[in-house]
Simulated scan of single mutants.
Amino acid sequence: MATIKVKFREPSMPGNKGTVIYRISHGNKTRCITTSYLIHPAQWNYRRNMPLTDINMKSSDIPEITRNINRDIRLLERIIRTLSDRAVTFDADDITERFNRTTTENSLFNFMNATINRLIQNGRIRTSETYTAALRSFRKFREGRDIPLDELDTDTIEAYEAFLRANGLVPNSISFYMRILRALYNRAVEAGITQQQKPFRHVYTGIDKTVKRALPISKIRQLRNLELSQSPALAYARDIFMLSFYLRGMSFIDMAFLRKTALHNNRITYRRHKTGQQLTIACTPEMKTILNRYPGNASDYLLPIIPLHVTDERKAYRNQSYSINRRLKQIAVMLDITTPLTLYVARHSWASAAKDSGIPINIISQGMGHDSETTTQIYLSSLDTSVIDHANSLILSSLL
Rank of each mutant, 00 (worst) to 15 (best):
K7R: 13
E10N: 14
E10V: 00
M13A: 12
K17A: 11
V20P: 00
N28Q: 09
K29L: 10
I33W: 11
I39D: 04
H40K: 09
A42T: 09
N45I: 03
R48E: 13
L52R: 12
L52N: 13
S60N: 06
I62H: 01
P63D: 06
P63W: 04
D72H: 14
L75W: 03
D94A: 06
T96L: 04
F99W: 05
F99G: 04
N100R: 12
N100A: 06
T102L: 15
N110T: 15
M112S: 08
I125Y: 05
A134G: 09
A134P: 11
R142P: 03
R142D: 07
D146H: 09
P148K: 01
L149H: 10
D155A: 14
A166N: 15
N172K: 12
Q196A: 10
D208T: 05
K212W: 00
A214T: 02
S218E: 15
L223Y: 03
R224G: 01
S229Y: 12
S231Y: 08
A233E: 14
L234N: 06
Y236M: 06
R238S: 08
F245G: 03
L247H: 00
F252D: 01
A262P: 05
H273A: 14
C283S: 12
T289D: 14
G296T: 13
Y301L: 15
I305G: 09
V310L: 08
E313H: 13
K315F: 05
N319S: 06
R326A: 14
R327C: 01
A332W: 03
A332S: 14
V333K: 14
T339E: 09
R347N: 05
A353H: 01
I364W: 02
S372H: 08
Y379E: 08
S382D: 12
L383I: 14
D384M: 04
S386V: 06
A391K: 03
